[in-house]
Amino acid sequence: MHDDQVRKEQPTIPSMAGGTRPRSKALRQWAAAYGFLLPNLVGFLVFTLVPVIAAMLLSFVRWDAISPWRQAQWVGLSNYVEILGFHRDPTTGALLPNDDRFWYYLYNTVYLMLGIPIGMALSLVTALLLNRPMRGVVLFRTVFFIPTVCSAVAVAVLWRWIYQPDYGLLNEALRLAGIENTPNWLGDPAWAKPALILMGLWVGVGGYNCVLYLAGLQNIPEEMYEAARLDGAGWWARLRHVTWPLLAPTTFFILVTSIISGFQGFFVSIHIMTAGGPAGSTTTLLYHIYQTAFVYHEMGRASALAMILFAIVLVLTLLNWRYGREAAQVMF
């Protein structure tokens, strides 16, 4: 919307609209414009656009990245078939996935996103509390935001220590609370994912989402609450019928961006805390791509996986554009 307004007000200065030699003038202007654009455009072409196209092509190839490029084999869609396809078991006739690990890693990725709704709820509660006009609230805002600025690598090292089964802080706290069978957090396939989620909550609750919620809350005009009060609305009714609907765009924005980044997140903590284990239970799609490409050197297969991830993100983004606004209005 904003762009259109400005575009209509494009230069109306006489010297630019019609000079003595309009064509050469226009050419000079274009040259100047491309001069401004060039450094970024070259970088954009070399490091973004061409690589995206190259990744698409690589996904149809089998190549180990170590041997020279001429030994790469064009294999058509077979990378995709190997990842996404199904086959019939010759004896039982049951339909089986060609690559059951892929589906497991996809499940892991989605499982880790369980932290998103929990984190959003906690962020909202935190923002509501931090929005109260009380003494010392600024101090709390700072404290809640600190984990977000901490370097993810150092945070992951710290939480590895907290989750250490014998000497770690968490299990000691659980033992003091009278729980005897403390889990081996990062060493147990059943507990590794919840452990990652818990750490993610610690990092994220007071972070960006909370700040966005705070900004959203501060944009709600005070008159709304006064009107609700005059109608006799209690705090719950005000929250339910004033705050929540007016925060709907913020909530929707956070939800969508969290899901999209959820497909691309957790790399640092996974690599440092579990290296994808135990038994692949914390390997996400992203981590699987990393391992396939840079540990096993299967560039073609990794590119195919990356394109599948891209497709998922693309569909989510398009759905967001197509239905985003309406959904935000209907849902809340």
Binding site: V46, F47, V52, L58, F263, Q264, A293, L309, V313
Partner: peptide, 20 residues
């Protein structure tokens, strides 16, 4: 074109950029 590539996951370009 710029807008369209903002949502491309980094991991997509990582492999070709590494090769380059």
């Amino acid at each position: 074109g710029y807008l369209a590539t903002i949502m491309v996951p980094h991991v997509v370009t990582m492999i070709p950029v590494f090769v380059l």
